[in-house]
Design a protein around this nucleic acid. Structure first.
Lengths: 347, 347
DNA sequence: CTGAAAGCGCTTACAG
DNA sequence: CTGAAAGCGCTTACAG
């Protein structure tokens, strides 16, 4: 009963239904079919013909071929979003925003690279070979943008520090850093540690610099040796913290600012294991305000970044560019807010 | 003389470089350009012409147009992966596996739907309009597959319970359920609770049924009222558990099996808050073995599902189908393993 | 309103 | 080895 399978009994051999087939069935030309199929019939196709074409389309199950259409029009109805890291839960909310704004006219396709990797110039050229109606690029690094010559409509997301002529929607993470500094200063901290990411993404730089500047201005100190970095991973962050804590304690550090909530989870975990009281002995803060930060114990004080809005605004801007409109503002910056929870203030 | 500078056009108005332009520059036909550009020159184009074409391609910065090429060949060099939920961290590892196996010949594009939503038939038709070389569909539901008529090469991932004629790579979550039951029986539990997901995904059904059957066979009981469900969210799972725990306690429940690690994190969190000793008073288990499960305290006993391998195998199968080869095995099932940690056995 | 026709950029028999 | 030519399926001036 072993089968020598030639599978796919499904209608794999079903012939592609073309506009020509519809045209023949409806007794009109392919031009008319095209008009009707694309919703451009009104005022250009007689009601009778339109009805006939619709009927034929229905009967045959005709769908406009994207490839043929793209070639004829010079561009596809696809919007491609390039993202370096989808494993970040934050990304899912950004996508949701993009989808919401894009609606059904354009098809959203994601091109992801391996974790932490940027798309190669080669990848990108191939992407452009698909003739996307527009490109959304999340968290690009500057060198990538240089390679990305001659795209059509392009909007960057979360790409701080670019020339003002590049359409972009940014998160004001610097503001978040300042809010954090103000909050910690207000709650009496003098010496603070900082746990950075290791990817060197611009947003991490901005987070760090904004915090450090504001902290300094507010009379707080980040002592020598109280600045470390760890990969974005709970366990690794926990280890890094465990190793650093004895020295920090000696230095008098009473708060630690983490570049991401994920780092902060590691600190919370290790602190619990080591019996460090939070926030009494050590206050902990993060960035991103991931879902778990509301429900961890204690809750994590974190900078909330509006991911859904980021995606939505970026897609809206892109839609304008695709429509050939000018952008009122090339660059949009979205405010971040500080969510204060039990990891910095006694519940 | 023309310059030998790199073909880095200055943005916006660069004219598309076509094969015809390359052909003219090299003094050959577009047929020859096509052969060279596609690496099919060997034995079909004279060395001299090949060199001339390569030179022209370099000078002009020519890239084969994906749309034109796809139309001529009938299929694109794109592989589209349809996935219902990218916010699941597990998914990132699957993608990594797919990318690794796919190599550089095919361009991987992701089509995601909103969380928990299946792609509509309409979406899918448009996807097929892009003429992908192959389709990968992650965690589809059966009704979706019915609509997906007449695709070319197609491989399903994590789609248990399908007819044997559909190429698929599955995770043996049933085995995971059995391992869990055996482990809990071996560690002396008699009454066990179960926290299910709410999405009704097939994999959740399989997890539950396999566990319940094995548990029954091993003499364990899941009492009336000790089966609840919660959305995949730490906080919601925590709440659901908090509400259920008093009754479970009365019933003599000493272990709880969660459909996902995320549910289990909620239980761990609430248990800590409520002073329930783990695993002494309550043993906790999950499915998925997410990264945090190694480092939570206590570590979470969980069924490890090989995500990277899942993606890799699926892509390998797809590559075979694309190449027109037969599959040795239509359906591949990957073993799951049980990672025993502190949430079920005293560290 | 309508259809014939000219592409869009490429690939691939085919004839030389 | 090589190039002219016929498409792939569609859209869009254009002439009627």
């Amino acid at each position: 009963m072993h089968s020598t399978q030639k599978p796919r009994a499904t209608a794999i051999n079903r012939r592609r239904v073309t506009a020509a087939m519809v045209a023949e069935r409806a007794g009109v030309s392919t031009a008319t079919v095209s008009l009707v199929a694309n919703g451009k019939a009104s005022g250009r196709v007689s009601p009778g013909n339109e009805a006939k074409v619709r009927e034929a389309i229905r009967e045959l199950g005709y769908v406009v071929d994207g490839i043929g259409s793209s070639l004829a029009r010079g561009v596809s109805n696809t919007v491609i979003m390039v993202a370096p890291d989808i494993s970040n839960p934050f990304f899912a909310t950004v996508i949701a925003g993009v989808r919401a704004a894009l609606g059904s006219e354009f098809q959203l396709l994601l091109s992801v690279t391996d974790a932490g990797q940027l798309p190669s110039a080669d990848d990108t050229r191939r992407l452009l070979g698909l003739r996307p109606a527009g490109l959304l690029v999340d968290a690009p690094d500057p060198s990538f943008l240089e390679e990305l010559s001659a795209p059509g409509p392009l909007v960057l997301l979360d790409a701080p520090g670019l020339g003002p002529e590049v359409p972009a929607v940014n998160l004001d993470v610097a503001q978040g850093g300042r809010l954090l500094a103000e909050h910690l200063a207000a709650t009496g901290h003098k010496k603070v540690a900082y746990i950075d990411g290791t990817t060197g993404t611009t947003t991490f730089e901005v987070r760090r610099i904004a915090f450090l500047e504001a902290a300094g201005a507010l009379g707080m100190e980040v002592p020598e040796g109280a600045r470390i970095a760890a990969t974005i991973n709970v366990g690794l962050a926990a280890n890094a913290f465990a190793e650093a804590w004895p020295q920090w304690k000696k230095l008098g550090v009473s708060a630690v600012v983490c570049a991401t909530d994920t780092h902060a989870y590691g600190v919370l975990q290790e602190a619990r294991a080591a019996g460090i009281s939070i926030p009494g002995e050590l206050a902990v803060t993060g960035f991103d305000d991931l879902p778990y930060s509301t429900t961890s114990s204690p809750g994590l004080t974190s900078v909330n970044l509006p991911g859904e809005l980021l995606g939505r605004r970026a897609a809206e801007q892109l839609l304008r560019l695709i429509a050939g409109e000018d952008l009122e503002t090339q660059q949009v910056t979205l405010e971040s807010t500080l969510m204060v929870r039990g990891s910095t203030v006694q519940g």
